[in-house]
Design a protein around this nucleic acid. Structure first.
Length: 478
RNA sequence: CGGGGCGUAGCGCAGUCUGGUCAGCGCGCCUGCCUUGGGAGCAGGAGGUCGGCGGUUCAAAUCCGCCCGCCCCGACCA
């Protein structure tokens, strides 16, 4: 009995399971440099598809792409007080170049607000120059103490949108619009249900006025921030002296937003859907949506079966989205396992019996259910099945999240529920950051967000007893 | 930075306590035959400065010292 990688069951060791899934699917590998990772083709293909989908949505909402440099003068960072305080400790700094010590150290970008706003100052003079709606796809570096594949690595890939507006209302609208884009990406493409919400002041981006986010629940009931959108107010315009003349001839500070999602989404995707057999990739984002396994044996001419398999792949109309595993040295069972570990949504088995009866067997990755389907209707049946898998993954993830979301009204209950089973605790909050900090210190849970759809509700903060007007979501987070 | 674990073939490990045919096993890989509807079988074969440096000894993967690296857990963070 041959084995590839064995995967630790979730129930035994969730963290090890996560690592095993990534290894088994060959999504990533550790790099020679601590905290950095190599994204292997299987993992990168997911990122490429996320990029493709998001990039389209950005362009549909009027944005354009540009590229700003990796190296940022140290002095730029110091211009926005809260920003430098938040990021300086985790910045990598270049001190030498060309064999000489540099006059001014250069920060490797942990995010690009400062370099971008230094440029916006040169580009903005009139209200006719606004809005500026620029996005960039880039890598950034943040020197983290503790790293995890995809979820937190020293260098990671992301996109960062940076927009400039004439009015507060417009900037706020943009911030919310992009949050909506992220929610659509998560739910409609990654099949991950998310809670859109507002961050508390403690949790907001360094330099922002307000930070919105989408929060997802992982299978260990912990929360994962899957995307953020920041209303930056006039903070960066003030720091970089970016003003424009409005139509009345008045000079005004520009309003800003920034928003981003990263390769962390791949970690979210893994932890939202995968199982003890390995990766499960939602069909809409999968590079390989189906794989044909020809059953090659002596019962029929292997060349004929293989030719039929290739023909079948063609008939599906999936193009590059389908491949045929033609290897003759591996058994069908081995291949089933191989592709299951890689999360391919649908396996199509085609053997002599199927060819004789004009059918193929569709096997879905999420449930393992097998279904014979007539060859004539294969393209439609497959398309339907892929959509059904998407819906079913989403529904399952949502039901799971709801099952572990609790209304909690006392501190004791809070501690109990957090300990077991864990999850999203919908709790009243007094609004005080100090109180929030104490809860975090004691329980390790943080306010993940104030849900945007939170209904006004009179209550009391279970920790300090002060009045509260709506519930927030507390959870342990990644 | 603390706590725990680990470093022996591509991967997973045994051997270390009790120095001496301990350079070994499984998987993978290569060749051939045979097989293929859930991780096949047989035969042959390639592959290792035992993380590094130093020490003890007639003799070190094994004992001692120092160093390096990695993983997991905790404090910071998308």
């Amino acid at each position: 009995m041959s084995q590839e990688t064995k995967i630790t069951p979730r129930a035994q060791d969730y963290n090890q399971w996560y690592i095993d899934v990534i290894q088994a699917a060959e999504m990533a590998d550790y790099s020679p440099v601590k905290g950095c990772m190599v994204i292997r083709p299987t993992g990168y293909a997911l990122w490429e598809n996320i990029q493709r989908v998001l990039d389209g949505m950005f362009k549909d909402t009027g944005h354009v792409n540009a590229y700003f440099p990796l190296l940022i003068p140290e002095s730029f960072f110091k211009k926005e007080a809260e920003h430098v305080e938040g990021f300086a400790p985790e910045c990598a700094v270049v001190t030498h170049g060309g064999g000489q010590k540099l006059e001014e150290p250069l920060f490797i970008r942990p995010t690009s607000e400062t370099i971008i706003w230094s440029m916006y100052k040169r580009w903005i003079a009139s209200h006719r120059d606004l809005p500026i709606l620029i996005n960039q796809w880039a890598n950034v570096v943040r020197w983290e103490m503790r790293t995890r594949l995809f979820l937190r690595t020293t260098e990671f890939l992301w996109q960062e949108g940076h927009t400039a507006h004439a009015t507060e209302a417009e900037a706020e609208e943009e911030t919310r619009r992009m949050l909506g884009v992220y929610q659509r990406l998560a739910e409609d493409h990654l099949a991950i249900p998310v809670v859109p919400g507002l961050k508390s002041d403690r949790e907001k981006f360094a330099g922002a006025v307000r930070t919105y986010c989408i929060e997802a629940m992982m299978q260990d009931h912990r929360a994962l921030q899957a995307g953020t959108s920041h209303m930056l107010g006039q903070n960066f315009a003030r720091a970089f002296d970016v003003t424009f003349q409005d139509d009345a001839g008045q000079r005004q500070l520009v309003w800003a937003t920034s928003w981003g999602v990263s390769t962390r989404l791949i970690g979210a995707l893994i932890m939202a859907h995968s199982d003890d057999k390995g990766l499960v990739v939602p069909p809409r984002i999968a590079a390989t949506k189906a794989v044909v396994i020809p059953i090659l044996g002596k019962k029929a001419d292997p060349a004929v079966v293989l030719a039929e398999a290739r023909k079948l792949a063609d008939e599906t109309g999936l193009g590059r989205g389908i491949q045929v595993d033609a290897r003759e040295n591996q058994s069908p069972g081995w291949k089933y396992n191989h592709w299951e570990q890689r999360g391919v949504p649908v396996r199509i088995e085609l053997g002599p019996r199927d060819i004789d009866s004009g059918q193929a067997v569709l096997v879905r990755r999420d449930t393992g259910e097998k279904k014979p389907v007539p060859r004539a209707g294969i393209a439609q049946a497959l398309a339907d099945l892929l959509e059904d898998i998407h819906r079913s993954l989403y529904a399952r993830a949502k039901a799971y999240r709801d099952e572990f979301t609790f209304d909690v009204d006392s501190a004791d209950e809070f501690r109990q529920k957090l300990e077991s089973p864990g999850g999203f605790l919908r709790t009243h909050w007094c609004g005080d950051g100090v109180c929030e900090g104490k809860v975090q210190e004691e329980t390790k849970a943080t306010i993940r967000c104030i849900p945007l759809d939170a209904k006004p509700e009179q209550g009391a903060c279970p920790f300090c007893g002060k009045p509260s007007t709506r519930r927030v979501i507390y959870a342990k987070a990644y």
